[in-house]
């Protein structure tokens, strides 16, 4: 009997069905990809702590350093979060504390404590896309951009990445027309992000240079943001990364601004 075209096809289909559980099935729902990337980048564990060193390099190659300890506590996965940042370098910002109550769906509450004046300053929420302490990182890069602020489109699925294009819902609130993220298919960490301006040019790029696993959570430990217009860039290095320390909510209050608890900020 001459094999019918159908019987030729069947074994192939059968093989490919068998192969699927081995090569993890690609996701096709962009909302799920974006949500998992958000959880992997900003919600690992219920809380976390890291020592961060930012090296800011300007177009002429001059360096400036920002060193701080960052604490995070999640109210719920993908939901509201608290952040506290205690600076140790340079000398003129030592003991400055930055506190954020991040809210999904409404403006964040942000405070800055200036120790020389014993002053607790409230910071307007409108300027999320301004420089974080003079670096090329923006406030929004540190605590995360809400996934609801963009429309998402899965433009490509490669061997290693989901390539997702994000278009802001409120174009007036940001300086880019779109941004594209290369999301690692296994860790869901965005490995590269490129921001595109009105002229269609990439003017800003964020890259994960190193990834390591801590307490079972893949974590970016070296990250670079480049301003492609000026040539300046900032490299952020994360050390002593720890998750699920049991940091109480009381740490993220005015008390911490004025008198930061060394118990939670000191890295041992």
């Amino acid at each position: 009997m001459k094999p019918s075209p159908a019987s030729l096809i069947t074994p192939i289909v059968g093989l490919s069905l068998l192969a699927r559980p081995v090569v993890a099935q690609d996701l096709t729902d962009v909302a799920e990809i974006v949500q998992r990337a958000n959880l992997a980048s900003y919600y690992a564990g219920n809380d976390g702590r890291a020592r961060v060193r930012m090296t800011i390099t300007d177009a002429r190659g001059r360096n400036r350093i920002r060193q701080f300890t960052i604490l995070r506590r999640d109210q719920s996965d993908g939901g509201d979060q608290d952040y506290a940042v205690l600076f140790s370098r340079p000398a003129d910002v030592r003991n400055t504390v930055f506190l954020v109550k991040k809210h999904v769906g409404r403006d964040d509450d942000r405070w800055l404590y200036l120790p020389a004046l014993d002053l607790v300053k409230r910071i307007a929420a409108g300027d999320k896309r301004t420089s974080f302490v003079g670096s090329h990182f923006l406030y929004e890069d540190v605590s995360g951009r809400s996934v609801d602020e963009d429309e998402h489109e899965l433009v490509e699925t490669t061997d290693a990445f989901y390539v997702v294009k994000n278009i802001p819902r409120d174009a007036g609130s940001v300086e880019f027309t779109s941004w594209t993220a290369w999301i690692d298919k296994t860790t869901f960490l965005p490995i590269k992000m490129e921001y595109i301006d009105d002229a269609g040019e990439v003017y800003r790029r964020i890259e994960a240079l190193d990834v390591a696993e801590f307490d079972g959570h893949p974590t970016v430990t070296r990250m670079q943001v480049s301003d492609l217009r000026s040539g300046g860039y900032t490299i952020s290095e994360f050390r002593n990364v720890q998750y699920d320390l049991g940091i109480p909510e009381s740490v993220f209050t005015e008390r911490t601004l004025r008198s930061p608890s060394r118990r939670w900020f000191s890295v041992r």
């Binding site: 403006d107 509450d109 409230r122 910071i123 307007a124 929420a125 409108g126």
Partner: peptide
Amino acid sequence: ARGTWLGGVAN
């Protein structure tokens, strides 16, 4: 009293 209002901070 101090809080956020219309994208800014009011006191």
